[in-house]
């Protein structure tokens, strides 16, 4: 390596990543499980279940990705501050 591998982030706490991972896995797997929704009834405003159920999953997925975003960026910020704070102290000494 030509330059030292300076860590950009401190060590991770697994909690937020596990929660986000579970949310994202649900958001990927559930919409792909076709037997759960390949039916006509119940209809919603004349729309068969097959169609409105899948459309419903668009905002649900968006919400899950949104929550994951909040969890992961918060942890990301903490990990960055962990290394950057340490580096600033080093320079000040």
């Amino acid at each position: 390596m030509s330059t030292p591998d300076v860590p950009t982030r401190g060590p991770a706490r697994p909690g937020p990543y596990i929660v986000a991972g579970v949310l994202l896995a649900i958001a990927i797997l559930v919409p792909l499980f076709v037997p759960a929704y390949s039916m006509d009834k119940p209809r919603l405003g004349g729309m068969p279940f097959f169609y409105w159920y899948q459309m419903l999953w668009v905002p649900i997925t968006a919400g899950m990705v949104g929550i994951s975003y909040r969890l992961v960026t918060k942890e990301d910020r903490r990990r960055r501050e962990a290394v950057r704070g340490a580096r600033t102290e080093e320079r000040e000494q």
Partner: peptide
Amino acid sequence: GFFAVPYTIVLYPIVFL
């Protein structure tokens, strides 16, 4: 045709990862 809907749903968790 309609597979485009689940396609563009599961797309975003993948992009996020």
